[in-house]
Every structure is written in structure tokens, then in C-alpha cells.
């Protein structure tokens, strides 16, 4: 599988992260998104007329839209990262995948304005981002009340992976995560997964590595 990838793209990171968590190998093809705008060039527009990345090429299959790519990889390599056939789970998964697009446009939009000089109405993007974070916080708090950590069912799924990056990177667009206790606990549970990988702006949990001083004490 070839992933048209950009190291700073949270949407591409979703795909890299899921692949890593599932132990699936991706062949990465670096796209010069900034400053080169290669995603708007002929070669990539031929693959994805929408002019966005990620793009996944797997033999004959060409997929765009990160949510679709997550579903595809999980269907092939990690069925238990998808909703079961339970109607409630199917609905919840779809709801959070759709919600992830709101995160992309609001928090992702603010990030592109604040970090990479993209045009946009920063205040409006931040306001929409805060509204989305408040919704997510309320939902995750309700999940905690019933003893759950993740968004769908009783385990981590692609719904969590789809929402995690833009939430974790909200501060890049000057939207603080400090007020959201349940989001913090949820993010930590994702970062603590075996084979979790980081992206710039999302640090790893150093405490999970053996303490280099242990033994000295």
C-alpha cells in the first residue's frame, strides 16, 4: 500500500497511526504540501481531483478521504477496529467519522492559519473548534460514567483514530485543551496503545519507556 503522505498533515497521520497500531506496512510517498503545494499539481490531481491528501493506492484501489482509508485498512487488517454489526455501534462509528470532518475544518483550519499562513477567518474557526471540543468532552464524560474509555463499543476503533489528531493538535491553532479533562484521559489512552507513533506536536509518553535511572536508585 502506498500512502501519499505529508509529515505535518494530521489527516495523513491518522493513516500512518492506524497502520502502525495494526502492524501494517505502508510505503510512504512524501508530498511537498508546504511550501510546494504539490497536492494541487497534475500528478496528484489525477489521483484525487479534490486536491487533498492522504491518498492511498493499493493495487487497483485508489482511495481518498482519511475516514474511508481508515475503514479500508481496518476492513483488510483489523476487523476489531471497526464497529460490530450492532446498530448502535454502526451508528456511533459513522457519527464520529462525520464529526472528524468538523474537527478538520475548524481546528485544522485554525491550525493552517496560525501555523502555515493559510487564509481564513481565524476567530470563526477557533469558535467552531471550541464548540466541537465541548461536544466531544461531553460525550467522553458520558462514556466514562458508563465505564468506557473510547468513543464506540468497548474498545478502541477507527472512530478514535479519526478524531484524535486534530484534537491533540488544537493548540497549534491557538485553541487550548486545558479545560477538557475527559478528552485528556481519552488522548492518553490512545497514546498508551502498543505501537503508537507520534507526529510533530504530539509527544510520546516518555514514562512508558523504561526509566534510564531505574536501578541507580
Amino acid at each position: 500500500m502506498i500512502l501519499y503522505d505529508y509529515i505535518l498533515s494530521p489527516s495523513c497521520y491518522k493513516v500512518r497511526l492506524l497502520a502502525s497500531l495494526l502492524g501494517v506496512k505502508l510505503e510512504l510517498r512524501a508530498v511537498d504540501f508546504h511550501p510546494g503545494r504539490e497536492h494541487k499539481g497534475d500528478e496528484l490531481l489525477a489521483l484525487n481531483p479534490a486536491g487533498s491528501i492522504p491518498i492511498l493506492v493499493d493495487g487497483e484501489d485508489v482511495l481518498t478521504e482519511s475516514a474511508a482509508i481508515l475503514s479500508y485498512i481496518a476492513a483488510k487488517h483489523g476487523q476489531n477496529w471497526l464497529a460490530t454489526s450492532d446498530a448502535g455501534e454502526v451508528g456511533a462509528q459513522q457519527q464520529w467519522l462525520s464529526f472528524s470532518h468538523r474537527l478538520t475544518s475548524a481546528l485544522g483550519g485554525a491550525r493552517l492559519v496560525e501555523m502555515l499562513h493559510f487564509p481564513g477567518d481565524l476567530a470563526a474557526l477557533q469558535e467552531a473548534g471550541i464548540a466541537a471540543l465541548r461536544e466531544l468532552e461531553a460525550a467522553l464524560f458520558a462514556r466514562r460514567l458508563t465505564g468506557q474509555t473510547f468513543l464506540v463499543g468497548d474498545r478502541i476503533t477507527i472512530a478514535d483514530i479519526a478524531c484524535f489528531p486534530y484534537v491533540a493538535l488544537a493548540p497549534d491553532g491557538s485553541v487550548s485543551l486545558d479545560p477538557y479533562a475527559s478528552i485528556r484521559i481519552w488522548m492518553r489512552a490512545i497514546r498508551a496503545q502498543p505501537r503508537f507513533i507520534e507526529m510533530p506536536g504530539i509527544h510520546r509518553l516518555h514514562e512508558l519507556a523504561p526509566d534510564p535511572l531505574a536501578g541507580d536508585a
Binding site: 505529508y6 509529515i7 505535518l8 512524501a30 508530498v31 510546494g36 497549534d172 510533530p200 509527544h203
Partner: peptide
Amino acid sequence: STITDLIHFQQLIFLQDRS
């Protein structure tokens, strides 16, 4: 390395510093 690889390596490093 391609130029894009070089750019991405440096952006990776610098964006880790930004936070």
C-alpha cells in the same frame, strides 16, 4: 534523498520544537 524528504525531515524537527 529527494528535496521533499529533506524539507520534511527539517519540518518534522522544527514542528517538534514549536510545541
